[in-house]
């Protein structure tokens, strides 16, 4: 059997450095961004033509969607595969580009105002964190089916032995002004309250409204819809639709968003400090 020649460590390291530099090259970042811009712009008419293919993406999870809706509607969904590929490449590029430079900024020979120089690199890392967060969210999040409830009606059994969930109505707020004529007597706040009963019989009450989810036992409860929307004719609510989700990765992408905002702010301050903008703005 022939001997397998192992590359010399020096050569391998040089190759690795070259590959790293190439992966983090700025021209590559520009090309990936332009590719993603064209890919997503092309997606608009395709989604419009086939909206029902994309709506379940948030419900069934990424892997299931890719192997069902995505795979069997390739003429409308091919761009989504391009988006995933492009974002992955952009994440790798941003990571390689910044990691090589960050050490020079924060290392021993750092200069005055080094913190502001970190701004663009923070945004690069944030892109990686957000991309991982989205991926985690679409892969690992769990959406519960059968979430339509009748207020003061039978409770819904929650998974993972969390107990039961029932909905009641307390002090709904109805619009009674004149400014929004189309909204007369419509509910501004339907006043839904969740009654969560643990297997031990412990009861927790939580308020839920649009854009105001309730949190319990690792699950988030979102008000998706309700009926009727108006207080007239008088009568009790007939239906409450809740979106119940467990998304362990949501904190990752929320953290990524916060890091991006901080990085962006530092970068803008740095631009101004460096008098690049100062002369023009003041």
């Amino acid at each position: 059997m022939d001997k397998v020649k192992s590359p010399r460590p020096g050569k391998f390291l040089a190759w690795l450095q070259k590959a790293w530099r190439l992966a983090g090259h700025l021209d590559l970042a520009v090309l990936i961004c332009l590719f993603l811009a064209l890919d997503t712009a092309l997606a608009y008419p395709l989604i419009q033509k086939s909206l029902s293919t994309f709506i379940p993406l948030g419900e069934v999870g990424l892997l299931t969607w890719l192997t069902t809706y995505g795979r069997f509607n390739l003429s409308h969904t091919f761009w989504f595969y391009g988006l995933m590929l492009g974002v992955t490449l952009l994440g790798i590029n941003a990571f390689c580009c910044s990691t090589a430079r960050v050490w020079a900024i924060v290392g021993p020979g750092r200069q005055r105002g080094w913190l502001y120089k970190l701004g663009p690199h923070l945004t690069h890392y944030a892109v990686v964190v957000m991309a991982l967060g989205y991926l985690g969210s679409y892969v690992f999040s769990q959406a519960l089916p059968g979430r339509a409830l009748i207020p003061d009606g039978p409770p819904l059994k929650l998974p993972r032995n969390l107990g039961t969930l029932a909905v009641s109505v307390h002090d709904p707020v109805v619009y009674e002004g004149e400014r929004l004529s189309f909204f007369q007597n419509w509910y501004l706040d339907p006043g839904f309250r969740l009654k969560l009963t643990s297997p031990e019989g412990q009861v927790t009450y939580l308020k839920v409204a649009y854009n105001r989810p309730a949190h319990y036992g690792g699950y988030n409860f979102y008000l998706a819809d309700f009926y009727p929307k108006s207080a007239e004719p008088a009568g009790s609510y007939k239906m409450v639709s809740l979106s119940i989700r467990r998304d362990p990765a949501s904190r990752i992408y929320l953290a990524g968003m916060a890091i991006f905002a901080v990085g962006l702010l530092l970068w803008l301050v740095d631009l101004r400090k460096a008098s690049r903008l100062k002369k023009l703005v003041v």
Partner: peptide, 18 residues
């Protein structure tokens, strides 16, 4: 509002990304 980072109910979201 929805518990998702991106809601696919509106196609215009991809124009924003683009």
């Amino acid at each position: 509002g929805w518990g998702l980072p991106v809601v696919w109910d509106e196609a215009v979201i991809v124009c924003f990304m683009a």
